[in-house]
Amino acid sequence: MIKLNINKKIYNLDADPEMPLLWVLRDVVGLIGTKYGCGVAQCGACVVHLDGEAVRSCVTKLSRAEGKKVITIEGLSENHTHPLQQAWLELDVSQCGYCQAGQIMSAAVLLNENKKPSDQDIDDAMAGNICRCGTYLRIREAIHLASEIQGKERS
């Protein structure tokens, strides 16, 4: 049995410790918000937070997550109220939408570490997330907007 803390809930899982966290989340726990895109840490669709760090769950073994706090898109906020989720909805960023959970999870770590990221900061931080529909412009804009929303919420 492996004990996992996912979205502030404790799970005791009977799973292969070698199994990537992505498939643990999707197939064992049933949290499907985290997406499979490439399986080799190239596209960022599977990004989750592990103790506040953005990790690619497709190459993160279950054993590495043991004892750490996992946050997935489902646990980012209640009722999609995270500043990034608000900004994403305000600017209607999504096209197909498949990559957006990973984009938001990567951006959330950026905004934690950098309250007012520049375009360059965003480009650097988001270079690991592919959007095949090409919504990059709106993602960039939404991160700026989220930064503003976050600033207002804290002030």
């Binding site: 997406k35 909805l89 939408g97 957006q100």
Partner: peptide, 19 residues
């Protein structure tokens, strides 16, 4: 302009896709 009716589901990781 009307917003994507599935926007909220997309940004909160609700089941939408074939996978």
């Amino acid at each position: 302009s009307q917003k994507n009716v599935e926007g909220a589901k997309i940004v909160s990781g609700k089941p939408l896709f074939g996978l």
